[in-house]
Amino acid sequence: MLLTKEMLAHLVMNFFIAFGVMIGGALIGGIGAFLIGKPVLSEIFSLSNSLKIWAIVAAIGGSFDAITKIESGLFSGVHEDVYRTLAMLLVAFCGAQSGSILLRWIVGDPV
């Protein structure tokens, strides 16, 4: 897989999009929990677990496009698309996991 400047920029963007969805979604959800009278820290902790898949999907730009690229790459013999899509998924997962770890570190374990 040839790592071009554009591909590296795309991977960095995917990481930070997933990271931002995790941090922003959980913190804004915590504000919502405060407004309705739920415990804020435990709600942020819960949201950090449930938002991870949505952060990955948001970072790769929709799940069907990524699955289509993997399928076309596998069956047409062009493995470059498969490697790029898997790299994007891995980087998006790392961004979501980093956001989740940061949120857990900030709020502790409010169980």
Rank of each mutant, 00 (worst) to 15 (best):
I60G: 05
S72Q: 14
I44C: 01
G37F: 00
I101R: 08
S98K: 01
G37T: 06
A92L: 01
L51Y: 04
S46M: 13
V57Q: 14
I53E: 05
T85P: 00
L51A: 12
V91G: 04
M88T: 10
T85V: 04
I56S: 03
I36V: 09
I31W: 10
A55K: 03
S42N: 14
F64C: 12
A87E: 09
L35A: 11
K69T: 06
A96V: 08
V91F: 06
L41F: 15
D81V: 09
E43K: 06
I67T: 01
G37W: 05
G62C: 08
F93M: 07
L90A: 03
I60E: 12
S76T: 10
F34H: 09
I28N: 09
G99V: 00
Y83H: 08
V78Q: 08
A66I: 04
L41M: 11
S63A: 12
L103V: 01
A33K: 01
I56D: 03
L86V: 13
D81F: 04
L102R: 14
I60R: 05
L90S: 06
E71L: 13
S63W: 07
V57S: 10
A58I: 00
A33T: 02
V40W: 01
T68H: 08
V40N: 07
S63M: 14
L74G: 09
R84M: 05
I44V: 03
F64H: 13
L41D: 11
L74Q: 12
T85G: 02
S98Q: 04
A59Q: 10
A58E: 02
I70M: 06
S42F: 14
T85R: 00
I36F: 10
C94T: 08
I56M: 02
S42H: 06
S76F: 07
S42D: 11
Y83R: 11
M88Y: 09
V57E: 12
G30C: 01
A96G: 12
G62N: 15
V78A: 09
L86G: 09
Y83S: 15
F64G: 11
D65C: 10
G62R: 09
S63R: 11
L90D: 10
L74H: 14
I53Q: 10
A58Q: 01
L86K: 15
N49R: 11
E43Q: 15
G37Q: 07
G73V: 04
N49T: 14
H79C: 07
A92N: 00
S98W: 00
G77S: 08
L102M: 14
L74N: 12
F75P: 08
F93W: 04
H79Y: 13
G29Y: 03
I56N: 02
G77I: 05
Q97E: 13
I56R: 03
A66H: 04
S72E: 10
L86E: 11
L102D: 13
V82W: 15
L51T: 10
G62P: 02
G30H: 01
M88Q: 12
L35I: 10
F93T: 13
H79E: 10
K38Y: 15
L86C: 15
A66M: 04
V57Y: 06
F34P: 08
